[in-house]
């Protein structure tokens, strides 16, 4: 009756081998097409710019972007990149920490959560970029304003998502802890938080993107450095090479930041889960 469900070690059947083979091939095909699309687009852009169908002055072109990249020392791309990444990370970490903290408070007190609900809804719906000028007046033009902007954009979403996760924790599991006399703090540390790790990582994935949005928006408004500044400056002086290169770098940064959260998630879930 009480058997331990271990997957039996069976030799792989012919059908299974064929199936696995097919799956593998499918994966390769998808990846190959993805890479080809990128290569074809870049090549097309380059060629069309060379033959003059595209005006490379307003559209830039891959070879000129590479040249811009190689001129790092001259145009200070690295510094700008560093500034943007730093601001994004600070905004992201602050947003996640404060967001989770506030969600815990709201979970703790049902009354507080009811009082705050309409305000949260309004704040969530409000386009936070509209507050940009206000932040500049409040905290001063500069990096502070940009970080506050990143925070403003990611904070409310984090609070709402985490609170929703906390409140949807399985009630009977919490009740089980209560039968052992668990207090509110124990309910949280033993049951609610561990069962919401996936919520935390989901919200971090959203957050890292939102922080970047906030930082770029902030840099558009007020800054002397950062990729956002570079894009605005490049646009104003018609250095489209600089603008396009910055945008591409931004895309890569966004992907890398997202990927690092995914890797962190994989690491934590593996540490905490069933593969012993």
């Amino acid at each position: 009756m009480f058997m331990y469900n271990q997957p039996a070690e069976k030799p792989v059947s012919k059908e299974r081998a064929a199936y696995l083979q097919k799956q593998k091939r499918k994966k390769y095909v998808v990846r190959a097409v993805q890479i080809s699309v990128v290569i074809v687009l870049i090549a097309l852009w380059e060629i069309l710019a060379n033959v003059g169908v595209i005006d490379s002055f307003i559209m830039s072109q891959p070879s000129r972007m590479v040249k811009t990249l190689l001129n790092l020392s001259e145009n200070g791309l690295l510094t700008h990149l560093g500034v943007t990444c730093m601001e994004t990370l600070v905004g992201f970490l602050l947003g996640t920490a404060l967001g989770v903290g506030l969600a815990v408070l709201l979970w703790w007190s049902d009354t507080l959560s009811r009082i705050c609900e309409p305000f949260l809804v309004v704040l969530n719906a409000l386009p936070k970029i509209a507050l940009g000028p206000v932040f500049i007046v409040w905290v001063g033009a500069g990096m502070q304003a940009i970080i506050v902007m990143a925070l403003a954009i990611s904070l409310i979403v984090t609070v709402l998502e985490m609170l929703n996760g906390f409140l949807n924790t399985d009630e009977e599991t919490i009740r089980m802890a209560q039968t052992f006399g668990a207090n509110r703090r124990q309910e949280f540390t033993k049951i609610v938080m561990p069962s919401n790790l996936h919520t935390l990582f989901n919200s971090m994935k959203v957050n890292i993107g939102l922080s970047l949005v906030g930082v770029i928006a902030g840099e558009f408004l007020v800054s002397k450095a950062g990729l956002g500044y570079l894009i605005v400056y490049g646009g104003q002086v018609f250095k489209l090479d600089l603008v396009m290169t910055s945008v591409v770098i931004l895309a890569i940064v966004a992907a890398l930041l997202y990927q690092s959260v995914v890797i962190a998630e994989r690491f934590v879930t593996r540490k905490m889960s069933h593969k012993n």
Partner: peptide, 14 residues
């Protein structure tokens, strides 16, 4: 000692 309908074992604990 109070036992509920489900076993409510925590999946992240051994």
């Amino acid at each position: 000692g109070y036992m509920l309908q489900r076993d409510n074992l925590l999946e992240w604990r051994s």
